[in-house]
Simulated assay, not measured.
Amino acid sequence: MRVDIEGLTVELAGSRIVEDVTLRADGGQVVGIVGPNGSGKSTLLRCVYRALRPTAGTVRLDGADLHAMDARAGARRLAALPQESAAEFDFTAAEVVAMGRLPHHRGTPFAGRTAADAALCADALDRVGAGHLAGRGFRSLSGGEKQRVLIARAFAQQPQVLVLDEPTNHLDIAHQLEVLSLVRASGLTVLTALHDLNLAARHCDVLYVLDGGRVVAAGPPHDVLGAELLAEVFGVRAHRVTHPETGALQLLFDLTD
C-alpha cells in the first residue's frame, strides 16, 4: 500500500511545528524519518496515525484520504507504535497483543475472538521474541519487554502500513537489530522515525531528513547522509565507512570544532 503525505502543515499553540511536508512511501518500502530533537518527526507521524489532525495537507493510502475514513477502516489498513505509550494496561501481554484484533471485530476487546485470532497473536509474540511473556502482566514488564509486546500488537493487527515512532527505544542492541529486521521482512509499507542514523542507514530504503519542521533532504541513505548535511543539521562531524560484511553505510561521529 502506497502512502502519500501531501503539503502537511501543523500549527500548535501558535507555532508551526511541521511545514509543507511532502513524502512518499511506495508499497513495501521502509521509509525513515530522521532529524534532531524538535525537528517535527513525532508530530508528523502523529498526523499519519490520526492522533493529530494537520492544519493543512493530506495523508493518503493508495489515493484515499486517511482522515476521511472511519476509525475502524483506517485501523484495518494502518497500525502504529507511538514513541510513548501512556496507558499502563492491567492485562497480560497476550491480552495486550489481542487488542490488535479489535479493528477486525465489533464489541468488547475480547468478544468474538477466534482460534485463528489466538494463533495470529501467539505468532506475533513469537516473531518479536516475546512468546515467553504471554502470561505476564503488562505492568510487570521492563521497558524493552513492553516495547516488544506493543510491536507484536501492531503485527497482530495485520495492517498494510506500519507507523513506528522510535521503535527501538528501550531495546538492547540485539533486539534493536532483530525488530528492525522483522519490520523490514514483513513486506509492509513502513514509516519510522529513528534517532540512530546507523540503524536508519542499514534498514531504510529511503530517508527524509527533517530540520525545523521542513524536509531538507530525501533519498537513499547513502546519498542523503553526507558529511556536509550531518554537520549542518545535526551539528556533528561524520566519517563515512562501509560495513565490512553487509556493505551498508556506517557513520562515525565527532563533535564539530
Results as ranks from 00 to 15, higher is better:
79 A>G: 02
177 L>D: 12
95 E>V: 03
98 A>T: 11
72 R>M: 10
54 P>R: 02
48 V>N: 11
13 A>Y: 14
27 G>E: 03
63 G>I: 11
104 H>W: 14
239 H>S: 11
163 V>R: 02
12 L>V: 06
68 A>I: 08
106 R>K: 09
105 H>M: 02
146 K>N: 05
92 T>E: 04
71 A>M: 04
106 R>A: 13
184 R>W: 12
109 P>M: 01
18 V>H: 14
56 A>L: 08
126 D>G: 07
209 V>K: 01
158 Q>C: 10
50 R>P: 02
125 L>E: 06
179 V>R: 00
39 S>K: 00
124 A>G: 05
170 H>Q: 14
180 L>Q: 06
86 A>I: 08
163 V>Q: 11
64 A>N: 09
167 P>M: 10
184 R>E: 11
201 A>N: 06
70 D>G: 04
77 R>L: 12
219 G>W: 00
39 S>T: 12
68 A>P: 08
142 S>K: 05
55 T>I: 07
153 R>D: 09
28 G>L: 01
22 T>M: 13
213 G>F: 03
34 V>N: 04
122 A>P: 06
96 V>H: 04
98 A>F: 03
164 L>W: 10
13 A>D: 14
36 P>Y: 00
116 A>E: 14
162 L>D: 10
144 G>A: 09
80 A>S: 14
19 E>V: 03
19 E>F: 12
140 S>M: 08
210 L>R: 03
10 V>N: 05
228 E>T: 08
159 P>W: 09
193 A>S: 11
25 A>C: 07
204 C>R: 01
167 P>S: 14
58 T>R: 05
186 S>Q: 07
132 H>L: 03
15 S>M: 11
79 A>W: 09
110 F>M: 04
163 V>P: 01
61 L>N: 00
27 G>M: 01
4 D>K: 00
112 G>M: 02
15 S>R: 15
107 G>N: 03
19 E>Q: 15
113 R>W: 13
76 R>V: 00
136 R>C: 07
172 D>S: 08
113 R>G: 09
71 A>C: 04
74 G>Q: 14
209 V>F: 04
114 T>G: 12
6 E>V: 07
85 S>V: 15
207 L>C: 10
240 R>N: 05
165 D>M: 06
6 E>H: 07
65 D>N: 03
171 L>F: 09
154 A>E: 10
65 D>H: 01
138 F>G: 09
134 A>R: 12
71 A>L: 10
204 C>A: 05
180 L>H: 13
106 R>Q: 13
202 R>A: 15
130 A>F: 12
211 D>F: 04
183 V>P: 13
3 V>S: 05
44 L>S: 06
251 L>V: 06
94 A>C: 08
210 L>N: 15
40 G>E: 12
242 T>D: 13
184 R>Q: 12
12 L>R: 13
208 Y>P: 09
170 H>M: 14
42 S>N: 08
45 L>A: 07
196 D>M: 08
232 E>S: 15
210 L>C: 13
163 V>F: 05
23 L>P: 11
195 H>A: 10
201 A>T: 12
116 A>R: 12
159 P>N: 02
163 V>C: 03
56 A>R: 03
228 E>P: 07
1 M>N: 00
191 L>H: 07
5 I>G: 10
